[in-house]
Design a protein around this nucleic acid. Structure first.
Lengths: 361, 361
DNA sequence: AATTGACATTTGTACGTACAAAAAATATAC
DNA sequence: GTATATTTTTTGTACGTACAAATGTCAATT
């Protein structure tokens, strides 16, 4: 047999859930409820206290007891932390310090705190980071997708953010399965310009090193193919060296084999990014392939490793810090209630000439 | 005035947290507590009910009230996340990218994830970061103290980490109130070498710019005084320009006033760090004070801003990335059960000559 | 029409009595 | 010594009185 207070709890909860008592509405006073349910005041209070603990009600001395909006925003009930979560594949490497600098700078201008986690391009670590951010209750998120070209089960989390109306924006790539806001370099254009530059320098035997698990890899390949097509050059699959996050460890070995194998068939390489570009430079040095005399090399992203290398790599720009600022700005604006924010932003790359591309005459 | 039931809650909670009542142990009966605290049974029950709702206690009809294992597994029940929390004052600026690079590199070697938050040298933000790390349940922590030379109420959190046996280590500074492991540059030695270098170059009118809210500031001042003493030079308080995190915004203005005011009394400045050193260089340029012809300047930390400046600042080394690696290594070793870890490590600085120090003859 | 003060209403704290239900302790029977 | 019944202990439900503290309402005053 149910205790009396439980009868009250069930009845009042039912009235709340069915809309008889709506959010913000005052329910009958304790003494009124005593009469309605024919119980003591203590029993009424016990029921109200329990419903308050569950977030359905809140009481105010001298005023009454109200249906709490806490119950409905149960998933948003976390205190306003003024914290933006940032999830990137790496923190210290490559272009990420610059991106993070942009993010941090903009967030600091608005007195937002930054909480940063890295995934190492691993879906399990991304999951962990997402759960942690959810659990803490960040106000918004800036996310670089993990293995953006592959199906990622963590997509469910992003759907959850959408439901909870937690603003988030992706950088560098996005999940094509989701309709989410993002900021990206125009990767097609980056490789297109790179390939076109080689073509304009007389190269017809152009290879590419491509990363298969990230969306950037896919679109940089697309730009390469587009430029080949415009130059009436045939696309040869054997001129493609492909790798992913897991096989990256062996890339240098495979690269040397590839370069040796194709030594007579390639005069130029479009590289997935500067890091790969410099690995090609190093491999050529080891193999005795003169750069750029025998093989021209173009990187992408204008990373600090390209800027600091012993050889000035020809490369394409990446917005880096500006992208970081814009991402932070987007989230802040969203949190301030802006509805008219652009949801898809592409940055156009520019060529930065180095000394790794030779003109064939 | 606290209600009686809150007194009971606080007292019983304190007994649980301090181990007087251990997990699984039965606390005194309701009627015993009535007598102990001289309150009614209803007041006892109200306290117990609330502690039960918070997960500290559980009651069993006919048996008694027990300390719940729910409470203790509240901080330990989290799945092993293999995540190390890092709390730094800044992320993108100054020497922090290098430190973070060292941390991240070592953690990745052991497949630990990194969770990073910055405090902007503000105790409230540090509190937020600590609570978030606690709530998520990091395996260990690397912490740069906030305003390390001042009392910080967040010290209670560090005590709590110790209680919960969550290994943590401090970098760059530590709270002298606590007996905690730390990794620090020998700040006394850094300023001592700087000042001694100026003395050896014939300087007798040496000023210092010092930061008062960080422990580094205190010990760099100490090294300066020590070197003055050894050279039989008198310490003049009016040759000291002091600032803190809050007044840093006005430092440049105050610096220019100071330099103009003391133009005839100073031939050299020991600066709290490179950032300050470069600000002095800029101020001199604005004031038409030739560097180093009229004023010699030494920074400290060998930060990237010193390395990348237009003028090659004379400075002292800081372990940066190595410190980061060592900190991560310490936490990992601790988590692996090592008991014989060194708890106080100092790095000895070396002078790096630039072009900002002139020899007086 | 706006402000102020007095009073009424409502929730919050604290005490009490009484009985129910479940577990633990003790007594009894074999 | 073991099993069972009885008693005691302990928490759970429900009722009551009393006063404190905060809010809301209404009437009087400006």
């Amino acid at each position: 047999m149910k205790p009396k207070y439980q009868v009250l709890i069930d009845d009042i909860k039912s009235k709340i859930l069915s809309g008889v008592y709506s959010v913000g509405e005052r329910i009958p006073t304790e003494s009124a409820l005593q009469k309605i349910y024919n119980v003591s005041r203590q029993t009424v209070r016990k029921a109200i206290l329990e419903l308050s603990n569950e977030g359905f009600l809140r009481s105010e001395k001298g005023s009454g007891t109200y249906v709490s909006n806490q119950y409905q925003s149960k998933s948003v009930k976390k205190p306003h932390n003024k914290t933006i979560g940032v999830i990137t594949t790496y923190i210290s490497d490559y272009i990420f310090p610059s991106i993070i600098r942009g993010i941090e700078g903009r967030l600091n201008e608005e007195n937002y705190s930054l909480l940063l986690a890295s995934t190492n391009n691993d879906v399990e670590q991304e999951k962990k980071a997402l759960e942690m951010m959810l659990s803490f209750g960040v106000d918004g998120l800036i996310i670089e997708p993990t293995k953006s070209n592959l199906y990622n089960p963590n997509i469910a989390y992003y759907l959850s953010f959408k439901e909870q109306e937690i603003p988030f924006i992706m950088i560098n790539a996005y999940y094509e399965e989701l309709d989410v806001p993002f900021l990206c370099l125009d990767d097609v254009q980056s490789s297109y310009i790179a390939t076109k530059e080689l073509v304009s320098k007389g190269h017809t035997q152009i290879g590419i090193i491509s990363k298969s698990d990230d969306l950037q890899g896919k679109y940089r390949m697309k730009g390469y193919i587009k430029a080949l097509g415009e130059a009436k050059l045939q696309f040869h699959p054997e001129k493609v060296l492909s790798f992913d996050t897991e096989t990256k460890l062996d890339l240098y070995i495979n690269l040397k084999k590839f370069l040796l194998d194709k030594r007579d068939e390639l005069t130029a390489m479009v590289c997935y990014n500067d890091e790969v570009g410099l690995e090609v430079v190093n491999a050529c040095r080891q193999l005795g392939i003169p750069v750029p005399d025998e093989l021209s090399i173009i990187g992408q992203d204008n990373s600090y490793i390209a800027r600091n290398a012993n050889i000035k790599l020809t490369t394409l720009t990446h917005p880096q810090e500006q992208m970081g600022r814009d991402a932070a700005n987007w989230v802040i604006k969203k949190l301030q209630g802006n509805k008219d924010l652009q949801n898809e932003i592409y940055y156009q790359p520019l060529l930065i000439e180095g000394v790794t591309v030779k003109e064939l005459t």
